[in-house]
Every structure is written in C-alpha cells, then in structure tokens.
Design a protein around this nucleic acid. Structure first.
Lengths: 151, 151
DNA sequence: CTACTTGCAAATTGTTTGCATGGAC
DNA sequence: GTCCATGCAAACAATTTGCAAGTAG
C-alpha cells in the first residue's frame, strides 16, 4: 500500500517530523501486515532490510506513529504485557487466544462496537478505544474436546 | 468475609499447600476489597500487618491463588501492563478509564458475557476468561465536554 | 523430619531514556 | 547550519526465580 505510506509521510512532514529512512522502513513493514505484530517482530522484519536499525528506534517510531494515529496498539493474551501494533487502516481486531493450541481467533470489531454502544447508551460515557482479550478454546479445540468427551 | 477465607484455606489444605501466615494475611487483604488491586497495593496493605512479608511472596501467592481460581486477575488502562487482582466472588468487573479525569467506570460483566455468548454462537469457540478495557471519557467528563461545546 | 515456603537479591522481560553522533530539511 | 533523530548502553518497571534458611503439617 504505497498510498498509505505516502499519506503517513505527508502527515509526518505536516507535523514537523522528519521522514527518515528508518521511519519509511517501519511504515513499509507495517503496511505489509494484516494483523498485529509486536515490537520485536517489527524490529526483526525491519532488520532484514536495514541491519543497522535499532530496537530503540523501532519503539520510538511505533510510539510516534501511535500518537499520530497512524497505528493502533493493544495487548493480547497470553503474554498480555507485550504490546502489539498495526496500521490503523481496516477493521479493528481483537483476539481469543486458545489455551490448548495457542492459536488466535480473530474477533472483528462489530461485536465490541455493539458493546461500546451499549456502554454509551447505558452509562453516558464516550469510548475512545476498546481492547478485548479472551482466553479459551478455539473452534477446533472446542470440537476436539467435545469429541473426546463423547468418545 | 471469614467464610471466604476459611473456604480458601480449606482448598489450600486439600490441594496439599500449606496455610502459612502470609497466605492467610493476603487472603484477609483480598477479602476486604471490592475492586481490583495491583501487587504493590496488596503488598502495601499486607505490609502494614506484617512488616516482614516480601513482594516476592505476594507475587507467588497471587499466582497460586489465581491458579486455584480463588482470585481473578486482569489488566486495566492506562497502565495496561500492570496486573490487578481480586477475589473471584461477586460479579466480574471491567473498566472504562477516563482520559480526562482518570476515573474508572465499572462495567459489569453482563455486557461482556453477551459478547462472549455471541462469540461462542458465531465462532464455535469456548471462552474461559475475558478482559475488556475501554479508554474514553466517563459520564461526568462526557457531560462536561458537551456543555463546553454548546456554551 | 521433610517438603513446601519464605525472604533476599539477582535475573528476566519489555520498554524507555540520556547522551553523543549523525542526518533531514 | 540547526534541530530532530538515531544507535548504543544504561536505566526502569513489573514480575519471576535461585538459593539458603525457616516452618507447617
């Protein structure tokens, strides 16, 4: 998505931030992904293109992009304390992490948006961002366990 | 809730764990709370009763209690990576943290349970635990901002 | 007694920051 | 040329762990 990258660089420029090779590289890495990546994964991908990039720059850049609204960041199970990031484009995703196989099941935002709307209606609050993390069994493991129980 | 504490101690015993003064103390601290506390807060409260208790013991004990299902743990905004704990008794709580005043609005579990049910129905997964964190404006700040906008 | 627990300090993990150098504009 | 940005290493914060000493059962 070169278009996305151009827009992002224009925004950087407009806000007085410099368009450095590192920032462009991280934009490229992020734009090529559909799901969330953690800082280490982003660093590893960027590092294959530019071996001199540092993890600190990755963190600083991700934080800058998040402040500018270019990327979303959230936490997922089971390593909940590790932050993950992705471009803000496209529908938000949340996850159910399977305790049996570790797989993440994507939960699209409509469900959480319903919840956010319910919240707004019931409590009079306004919601800026929402993060939902579920732990459980994915569809396959749920089915497998049912079979096991039956058999 | 001495009743809760007795039950917890009985469970410890039944599972072959020892009922130490530290564990009893932490149970007392937890039982006296209605909302989530982080490890430091629990340590601070315990420390007023027994100055020799260590933070490591608090962490170990909380993890043990969580494994036994005695307490719930989750993460809340804005310091999302810090874990918070409370006794499993009573309705689960989730929070919306206000970015303007910092107040936490309690979100009772029925909303999230609806979402979990929806998930089960739509995706065939099973949900063990769910954590939802919202960032936004609490009811007061939402109202204040509306007034400000109008006035 | 014996195995589980504790306290302490050190180790880990994820992320941030100070500082001197380097580079975008 | 002037700041902003980078890389490095050290600092931080939250949590975990190794180990020797202590204690519940």
């Amino acid at each position: 998505m070169p278009h996305l990258i151009d827009e992002a660089e224009a925004l950087l420029h407009a806000r007085g931030f410099k368009v450095t090779p590192q920032r462009t590289l991280i934009l490229q890495v992020m734009a090529g992904q559909t799901s969330y990546l953690d800082a280490d994964e982003i660093f590893a991908l960027a590092h294959t293109q530019d071996a001199s990039i540092s993890l600190a720059t990755v963190y600083r850049t991700l934080n800058l992009f998040a402040e500018l609204g270019l990327i979303d960041h959230r936490y997922v199970e089971p390593e909940h304390r590790r932050e993950v990031f992705r471009m803000s484009e496209g529908p938000e995703q949340h996850y159910l992490t399977c305790v049996r196989c570790g797989k993440r099941t994507v939960i699209h935002a409509d469900l959480l948006n319903q919840m956010a709307n319910e919240l707004v209606r019931r409590k009079g609050v306004s919601v800026i961002s929402a993060c939902a993390c579920f732990t459980g069994y994915c569809a396959e493991c749920t089915a497998a366990l049912k079979r096991q129980k039956r058999g």
